[in-house]
Every structure is written in C-alpha cells, then in structure tokens.
Amino acid sequence: MTPPLLRVLVVDDERPALDELAYLLSRDERVGEVLTCDSAAEGLRTLQQTDVDCVFLDIQMPGLTGLDLAQVLSRFRSPPQVVFVTAHEAHAVDAFELRAVDYVLKPVRADRLAEAVRRVVAGGERSPGTGQDAQIPVERGGVTRFVDRADVTHVEAQGDYARLHTAGGSHLIRTPLSTLEEEWRTAGFVRIHRSLLVALAHVREVRMDAGRCSVVVGGPPGPDGGVQLGVSRRHTRELRDLLLRRGES
C-alpha cells in the first residue's frame, strides 16, 4: 500500500530560503501539501490549529528560535517530526537532543533534502537513541562529529552528562546516564554500576576476584587488552545471566 502523502510546514524568517525550500519540497512526490510561515511564533499558531507530519525548521530566527519551537512541540501529545534546516553546524547536538529526524545545512541540495524526506517517511529511523545503526552527534572545539553507537564500548556518568567511550577516544554528551540506559537497552547496553553502562557486544572477558566481578571491554582478550570495569554486586547476577544467554544464542 502506498503511504499517504506528507503535509509539511516550513518555518524560516528569510523569504528567499523559505520559498526555495517550499519549492523543493513541493516537487517531492512523497509530499502532498506544503505550508509556510516566516516566524516561529506564526509556526506555533499554525501547528496549534493544523496537523502536519513534519516541520522543516530554521534555527536562528528573531524572538522565538527554532530550538525554542522544537522544545514546545516535544510537549505536544502527538508531536510532528522535526527537520532542522540551518546554515549553522554548531547547533547539531542540541537539535538531536530534541529528537530531530535530520539536520540539513544550507544551502540546501535537492538530493540532501530528498534524504531528509525519506527519513521522515521512515519515521525518523536515523534519530539518535533509536535504531541499531544510530549515530550520536558529539561536539568538540566547535566541530560536530557523529559517533556510531555500535562503536561505543561503555558509557560513564558525569553528573547530568555522559561520557561515551570508544576505541578511538571518549566524547561528552549532554544526556544523563539514566536516559541512555532506558533508550539504549534494546541495543544491548546494560547498567553494571550506578555510574556505568556497558555494551554487551564489546564484553571480552568476565573476571571474578575474591567475590568481586569485573568485565573487560574492547581490545583483544588477555591481561593487557581492553579496559577493565568493576561490576557492582547488585548487577552481577543480571549481567552474568545476560552474557550466558548471549553465548547460547
């Protein structure tokens, strides 16, 4: 069955950019209707009166910004999907923390916009924290990079932040460990300590010493390979059961 055509809203305070984006979207065979607004405040009024499938949203606008509007939309009972369209890379982390489906940089290419529409149709399959191939935006020195979640060996709590550890280094993100534990459980991440999540796929060894359990993640097996992480007593049995089931599958 052919999926229904999308109704989308484009919000941008710059008329040329607004018209260009609306034109490109109107040419996409998956889009049935394109609404436009030249401010976030007007966009909010429209969204309170009209159901749309997705909002293509500029970030830097006078008054209410695109990020502000996205935060308001996140509290809707059935929020539309959000694609940010902006000339600035610096807001990518904030955008994806608001569960944006995509983050498209201006000037917008038709093929790149078509990919954003594909992700909307697919229900945001590339949104961070969901899907087995999720990519996590991390920012360092004003540059946003994307880390494959499959490369993350373990996650360490640092207050309201979390530090992702990979073989190539570590990355701090503005997401509490408790949130990642809930969202990444289906991807094989389990809590082994109040301040640690571990990716079961990266566990190389389980060690017992004087009744205390630890695991080794990353690197080759052996005394000099990987990183050793302590497992709290309350999480030891659950972890060992999960690893046994993994070995039997």
Rank of each mutant, 00 (worst) to 15 (best):
G131E: 00
A40R: 02
P3D: 00
R245L: 05
Y23F: 15
R27N: 12
S39P: 00
V120M: 06
G247V: 11
H165M: 09
L24S: 05
D13P: 04
Y161E: 06
E97F: 00
E20R: 15
A40V: 01
C37P: 00
L57R: 11
G226C: 08
R126T: 13
E33M: 13
W184C: 09
D241C: 07
V31T: 11
P80H: 10
L243T: 12
T236I: 06
H171K: 01
R207T: 09
L35W: 03
E139C: 08
Q135I: 07
M208P: 00
V85L: 04
V120N: 04
D102E: 07
L98G: 10
V143Q: 13
V72Q: 14
A40K: 04
H154V: 12
A100G: 07
F84E: 03
T130M: 06
G141A: 10
E14K: 14
V217G: 04
G219T: 09
G124L: 08
L47Q: 02
I59S: 13
R145S: 15
E181A: 13
V198K: 05
V52L: 09
P80D: 09
V138A: 08
E115T: 15
L172R: 05
R145K: 08
L35G: 04
T186P: 00
S26I: 07
V152F: 02
S78R: 14
T36C: 12
A17H: 10
V93Q: 07
V108W: 01
A22I: 13
S78L: 15
R233C: 06
H88I: 15
T130H: 07
V206P: 04
P62H: 07
A95N: 03
V147K: 06
D12F: 12
P220M: 12
D111T: 04
P107R: 00
V11P: 01
L196Q: 05
I136S: 05
L197M: 03
R163F: 08
G218N: 03
G225A: 05
D19N: 15
P16F: 14
L25F: 11
A116E: 00
A122G: 08
R237W: 04
V217I: 11
Q132C: 11
A162F: 02
R234H: 11
L239V: 13
T236K: 14
R75Y: 12
T2H: 10
D68K: 14
S26H: 04
G211W: 00
